[in-house]
Design a protein around this nucleic acid. Structure first.
Lengths: 234, 234
DNA sequence: TCGATCAATTGATCTATATCAATCACTGCC
DNA sequence: GGCAGTGATTGATATAGATCAATTGATCGA
């Protein structure tokens, strides 16, 4: 367990969540938090547990998953630098999701009680928390719509288009995490993910290992029918 | 278009969202808002539109639905007294969902800009908004998990158990809205909703029209495997 | 009271996706 | 360099749920 080192601060401070708040208050949060490195495939917390920390993934990759009816499903693949499990911290309710590292990860742990306390004191932090929750809410509305209305290959197509934009190069990028995790995120089996990639090959998508190339964006869009409302910025 | 009448205030003021805020500020919001009655089956707003108002359903029934890939799906059945479409208002982004009245409804319209302005001024309102979004976020996490992991009859079983508790009598209650809307909410066709009710008949559920009776709660729970983490209050 | 209308139900298929079963292709290690 | 071990792919089959097609039942107005 280490306290937050100087080198880490800038990228964490640059997060929308902490960016606009009072410097002293931010310092207070950071000095009460600690950075920890976790090995791959380690369970960080399980659904049902009391939410003792807000997590900020600084480096690595984390999977959030939910369990129900004896099976599990990936809810989110968290890429750095992002906070996660904010809603549980804000409501002071047990986690609905579990988390595990997919690769070795450096994570900032902010004590939930401290976070809740400073939120109450700092209007900018509260505002940012509110925004983050609202944006997250809308992301889930999209995800649920996607799951209810689109079929698997279309979901994959949309995911690839969005991921391309998010990662900076809409034409070509690397998939994050194993394909089986991606399959679970998209609500399908690994077998069907393979077949879905096969389908998309005829609609302007190239894949080789985890390298994805979007050869014909219009063609892919025509097939996967992206949401008319464009994605929210951050 | 009428301004908020005295008679309406108490139940709106009692909403968690407005309950704890400064009285003067609340007055400011209410005097800038108006109550309106809408006939059944009227579209209140459509996805993609700029979010000009926060809506509070005072009386009646409203359906929130999303459209994608040419089809539509019910996202939420809003019962009084509840605010809706808060995330769009907070982020000042276009609606992701459309809304229509299912029956004649009395609705409070709070101008979105006014809402955002007062949120910035009143810490208690901001806090309540944050809480509401966090609770909503968790509701969507549950809904998405449900859709991904449970099959249709189980989803129905869980819905009925929760609805019973929410409406005050876990043993017997009336379904809100038409069954076709419920089917869409639960991500199935009306035909399959009928069959799902048929399945649940062997698992402690009685139905007659829109009247649902839960004859054997344990049996139903055994079948539909409710979430181990209990639902959030409010 | 009788049709007309529309939601709900029931039955018969069809289809997207899951499941089961190999096989293939890496990756790392001895 | 070869061979476990693991993830990805491909193929064959099974199944939950959709779709199509009537039929039933309830509501409402003439």
């Amino acid at each position: 367990m280490n306290f937050v080192r100087i080198g880490e601060k800038p990228e964490i401070s640059r997060l929308p969540l902490f960016r606009d708040m009072d410097d002293g208050k931010r310092e207070r949060i950071f000095s009460g938090s600690f950075l920890q490195v976790f090995p791959p495939q380690l369970t960080l917390f399980a659904a049902g547990q009391q939410s003792d920390f807000l997590y900020v993934l600084v480096d690595g990759l984390v999977e959030l998953y939910a369990v129900s009816a004896g099976r599990e499903t990936t809810m989110r693949i968290v890429e750095p630098v992002t906070s996660f499990i904010l809603a549980a911290v804000v409501t002071d309710m047990p986690f609905l999701m579990s988390a595990r590292t997919l690769v070795s990860s450096r994570i900032l742990l902010v004590p939930a009680a401290l976070m809740r306390e400073v939120i109450k004191q700092d209007a900018a932090l509260m505002q940012a928390t509110m925004q983050e929750l609202a944006v997250g809410y809308r992301g889930l509305v999209r995800a649920l719509t996607d799951m209810k209305l689109r079929q698997s290959a279309e979901r994959l197509g949309n995911y690839l288009m969005e991921q391309g934009v998010r990662l900076g190069d809409p034409e070509a990028f690397e998939l994050k995490g194993e394909k089986r995790v991606l399959a679970s995120l998209l609500g399908m089996t690994p077998e069907n993910l393979s077949r879905a990639f096969g389908v998309l090959r005829d609609h302007g998508v190239g894949v080789s290992g985890s390298r994805v190339t979007i050869l014909d964006r219009d063609r892919l869009a025509r097939f996967s029918r992206p949401d008319p409302v464009p994605p929210d910025p951050i």
